[in-house]
Amino acid sequence: MSKAAIHYSFDHEHLLGIDGLHPLDLTHILDLANDYAEATRSGKRADPVLSGKTVVNLFFENSTRTMSSFEIAARRLGADVVSMPVAQSSVKKGETLIDTAMTLNAMKPDVLVVRHSASGGAKLLSRKVDCAVINAGDGTHEHPTQGLLDTLTIRRNKGRVEGLKVVICGDIVHSRVARSTTLALHLLGAEVHLCAPRTLMPSGTETWGAASATSDFDAALEGADVVMMLRLQLERMDGAYLPSRREYFRYFGLTAERLALAREDAIVMHPGPMNRGIEIESAIADGERSVITEQVEMGVAVREAVLHLLAGGRS
């Protein structure tokens, strides 16, 4: 254990974003998550550090993948889990986010895992409740556990994060994944290049720590260690932000030909769910350089680590 780590303790009440975390926090979460990943792989049962604790999954937007991932992570640590896909429930009848939160808060959960369509939704909720809040995606703002799982996947495959060239390509402007992952990778010293058509590229990405922002995918891929493709919402194509799907695929789709521009040992990532044939060719998504399923596996491990740190006492 290094000297710096001896005096370290994770003293955050919530996990609302990567923004506000220290590189030591990240390393600490990733180390713990890696232990959980290894334990699961070797068939070891995790200590029930959340035994007797209640974790509520409050999802105002539908997401089977993320909600199940949190659910599995919490159960592995022995927590009682209640999952509420509120997208179809009382919230539709005019009950506000705050009213729902106050109601749940009165039931004394230990952790609220929240996904909401509005940027700042998790932050707003954290002001009104007494328990730990984990942001599982708020609008187009952040999705911190995704940023962490991406970073862990990269670290495991490359043995390090510092100095790597990472290219993130797709709908950057609407992507909370792009924000969280860029922030996390930058904090740990990676060089992150963002790539998107100009209509889907926000301004000021240098404040997230991005090394460059370009609409030339081929140039960006030069010498890349990691290529991460983002999901393109289908409603954003067909004339609104882009002329057509095929035009997008022509300039921004990841093909075998294009991947050859990156380093030979470059890995391919995608936060899912994928639009095969639009942002990524099937052969690449399923190919040997793809670590997309490992991302899903690390998702559970990272969520175990975060739940442990926020609700399971200090490690």
Binding site: D19, S119, G120, D138, G139, T140, H141, E142, V173, R176, R179, P202, S203, G204, T205, E206, T207, W208
Partner: peptide
């Protein structure tokens, strides 16, 4: 206001 801060906040 449109700009870097809005983009960072996802607004």
């Amino acid at each position: 206001n449109a700009g870097a801060f809005a983009a960072r906040k996802g607004l």
